[in-house]
Write a protein that binds this DNA or RNA. Structure first.
Length: 753
DNA sequence: ACGCCGACCGTCCGA
DNA sequence: CGGTCGGCGT
């Protein structure tokens, strides 16, 4: 079968396009991923392009993984050699090979936002910058913006012009960069800028990659920043055998879905692509295959309020479908309650499954109230993006050990763990070592090694030396021939006594931490087993640094998924709930009162457009009249975006005020209810397991009257167990949350001692 | 050196 | 409301 058969004429043109720059303006749901994968497959199969001559840059690691799989499905081979990855991963791969040409070591560390902040705090302290007046966060974001625009510390300094704030920022930028270099570390932005720097200064490295990447594709092109543009431009400017520049660059984007201006995305990259690359061919994909007419019309109406867009109009052959629904609830509690109940109702009555549903919101903070409800109702769910696994203390600690072993120059990592677990090395000691290191121009770790020579450290140097020899021991072990990297964490835990200390604590929190560490061990083992090249410590650490929460999103898992509108980009769901459609929430407070509200509101509107176009079958919008935010009640009007939807497309619901069992009720009434139930105490029975067809019921390990533990609710007492459908329904009176009915298979209750 | 507690604060979105 | 940081007390 011809791989072109399933494509529409425009898609076909894009796939068949031969050489030279190509801009594909792909509206939401117009099958751009299909075009990209088919184009790659076509290049390999019909144009004799070698898989290793193709570079495809995607937005997430997940998208990269899927693209490879899909190319494999079409071509059946070769996908392994295609270089498909995100901007950041691409740059890391390049830098691991060539960064020594610009004065770093190839074992460089990658600093995450936390590390950057820690470093910036040190810098501010050193430069006497009052972080009350100039918060380190604002300095970091100024630096980040500068890096997005490829502005060096020196150039930044020149542009200061006597402005006090800018002058301080310039100083901080310079010092920050100096210290990153000394730590042999790169922050997220450096990954891009240092790659550009490498290519600008080292022709050999540039030519190597220009020759290698004969065909370049970039997805989500509207969200690239200036540095990324520069990178792509450099890579695509190679000279072919005939001595000509071909610019075999194919970018796919949609200016209406540009939602990352806040992190430096430069909309001009897509708007003036044709100017940057002469003889660009432009193809518009305007047929939407995803949504019903009602949903698509709604999206078009909303986005029409933006000015200065590229001219295009999305249409669909799909059926009209139901009108979009909008409900204004009394409160955020009611909103969460009603939406979660409705989803359950649809799943139970209409044969939908939980993974058909997404709840989308503007800010991560909004997930909390939904989570409470979903737990309460025993509805399986997954929240994407709220608390990063790798940001947890115990995980960062272990990773800091690994970084220290991998790159002794990483001062932030060494300082993090020098006294974790406690070894009696305090602030004064650390300061003295630090001063010595700065004075002698050596790393913090090197200063530790020489601590015996440092004046004033007579007493603590023995403690320091035992730390040093522990690290050295681990490092030697790592470099032994048959050492299995998968054991490294265990060895660290063993040498440091980290686990023993947590064990001794014996609290719930400590147990949580231990299970998180177990999880990290699992990830390391998986990495070692599945690594494409030889697994290395640096390799693992960079994988960890560059994963995003969305990469772990598994659409086949049967749960509702909750995430921000930003995270939802590129995804689709049959049923979409967009909640918190309120002025001040969405569009956010910050954009309404910004210096340039027009611009900011337009970005919010594009975000709204992205949200609407995620829905395939049914879209539900909602707002709340009152909502609890940062401890106080706020009262918001419905979002302007709601008013931009014509009435004929939208069904406005009146919320049904059926009395809902809310656990925001006062606890005492629930408590007396419980007392009542205790009076007519039920006899102690554990129901016999009934093996129903298709169910996998197992005998419960607890019975009525037992004390059990729930992962969120904590300790409680079982007051009733009944058979509900294919699962046990367990009623538990929790010490802190009161009485709840839970389904045994979801709740995963365990006997508490 | 370390732990606890209270004040404070600041809030968007993210690799 | 929740996390974080700095100060103070031991």
């Amino acid at each position: 079968m011809n791989i072109l058969d399933t494509l529409n004429p425009e898609q076909k043109r894009a796939v068949l396009h031969d050489k030279g720059p190509l801009l594909i303006l792909a509206g939401a749901g117009s099958g751009k991923t299909r075009v990209l994968t088919h184009r790659i497959a076509y290049l390999i199969e019909h144009r004799n392009v070698k898989p290793w001559n193709i570079l495809a840059v995607t937005f997430t690691n997940k998208a990269a993984r899927e693209m490879k799989e899909r190319v494999d499905q079409i071509v059946g081979y070769g996908s392994h050699d295609i270089w498909v990855s995100t901007f950041h991963s691409t740059c890391v791969r390049i830098l691991r090979r060539f960064i020594d040409r610009i004065g770093y070591e190839r074992s460089f560390s990658i600093y995450d936002t936390d590390d950057s902040k820690t470093l910036m705090r040190e810098v501010c302290k050193y430069l006497d910058i009052d972080t009350k007046r100039i918060p380190e966060k604002s300095i970091l974001s100024a630096i980040s913006r500068a890096k997005d625009e490829l502005i060096t510390p020196e150039e930044f300094e020149k542009s200061v012009n006597g402005d006090y704030m800018l002058k301080k920022q310039a100083e901080a930028y310079k010092e920050y960069q100096k210290r990153l270099k000394a730590s042999n570390a790169l922050d997220f932005d450096d990954l891009i800028t240092k790659t550009v720097e490498l290519f600008m200064t080292d022709k050999e490295a540039l030519t190597y990659y220009q020759d290698r990447f004969r065909y370049i594709m970039v997805d989500e092109y509207q969200d690239t920043n200036t540095a990324q543009f520069r990178l792509i431009h450099l890579l695509a400017s190679g000279i072919n055998e005939q001595g000509k520049r071909e610019y075999n660059l194919c970018v796919v984007g949609d200016d209406d879905q540009s939602i990352y201006k806040f992190r430096g995305a430069n909309i001009q990259n897509i708007l003036s692509f044709e100017k940057s690359f002469p003889n660009t061919k432009i193809i518009k994909l305007e047929q939407n295959y995803r949504s019903t007419k009602s949903i698509l019309d709604t999206a078009n109406e909303v986005i029409a309020n933006n000015i200065g867009r590229k001219d295009k109009s999305l249409w669909t052959d799909n059926e009209k479908g139901e009108p979009v629904s909008y409900t204004q609830f009394e409160s955020d509690i009611e909103e969460a309650d009603s939406i979660t109940s409705e989803i359950r109702r649809i799943v139970e009555n209409n044969g939908a499954s939980y993974n058909d549903f997404a709840i989308l919101y503007r800010t991560n903070a909004q997930s909390r109230i939904f989570e409470e409800r979903l737990i309460q109702k025993n509805i399986p769910y997954k929240i994407i993006g709220s608390v990063n696994f790798y940001a947890r203390k115990e995980i960062k600690d272990i990773l800091a050990y690994m970084k220290t072993i991998d790159n002794g120059l990483d001062n932030i990592a060494v300082k993090r763990i020098i006294n974790v677990p406690r070894r009696g090395i305090g602030m004064t000691t650390i300061d003295r070592v630090n001063d010595y290191a700065l004075l002698n121009g050596i790393s913090f770790y090197e200063a530790l090694v020489r601590s015996q020579q440092i004046p004033g450290l007579e007493r603590s140097s023995s403690k320091i030396m035992s730390f040093v020899s522990m690290i050295e021991g681990l490092r030697t072990q790592l470099h032994q021939k048959n050492y299995n990297l998968a054991e490294l964490i265990d060895d660290i835990l063993d040498a440091t006594g980290y686990l023993r200390e947590l064990d001794a604590e014996g609290t719930d929190e400590a147990r949580d931490r231990i299970s998180n560490i177990d999880e990290l061990v699992n990830k390391l083992v998986t990495y070692v087993e599945e690594a494409e090249d030889t697994p290395t410590l640096s390799g693992f650490l960079e994988e960890v640094a560059l994963v995003s929460d969305i990469d772990s999103f598994d659409e086949s898992a049967d749960n509702i998924v909750l995430m921000t509108l930003h995270s939802a980009k590129g995804l689709e769901f049959p049923y979409v709930y967009m909640c918190g459609m309120e002025e001040g929430i969405f569009p956010g407070y910050m954009s309404i009162y910004a210096d340039n509200p027009q611009e900011e509101i337009e970005e919010e509107r594009r975000l709204c457009y992205v949200g609407i176009t995620r829905a395939m079958k049914r879209l539900s919008l909602s707002a709340a009249k009152q909502r609890m935010s940062r401890g106080e009640m706020s009262y918001n009007k419905p979002s302007r975006f709601i008013h931009e939807i014509p009435r004929y497309l939208m069904k406005v619901n009146v919320p049904d005020n059926e009395p809902t069992k809310s656990f925001a009720f006062n606890k005492s009434s629930l408590f007396s209810e419980y007392r009542q139930s205790q009076k007519n105490y039920k006899p102690f029975i554990t129901p016999e397991p009934r093996h129903l067809a298709g169910s996998n019921l197992t005998k419960l390990e607890y019975g009525i009257g037992d004390k059990v533990k729930h992962v969120k609710f904590g300790i409680g007492k079982v007051t009733d167990i009944t058979m509900g459908g294919k699962d046990y329904e367990v009623t538990v009176d929790f010490e802190r949350y009161g009485i709840k009915k839970l389904l045994a298979s979801f709740a995963k209750l365990t006997l508490a001692d």
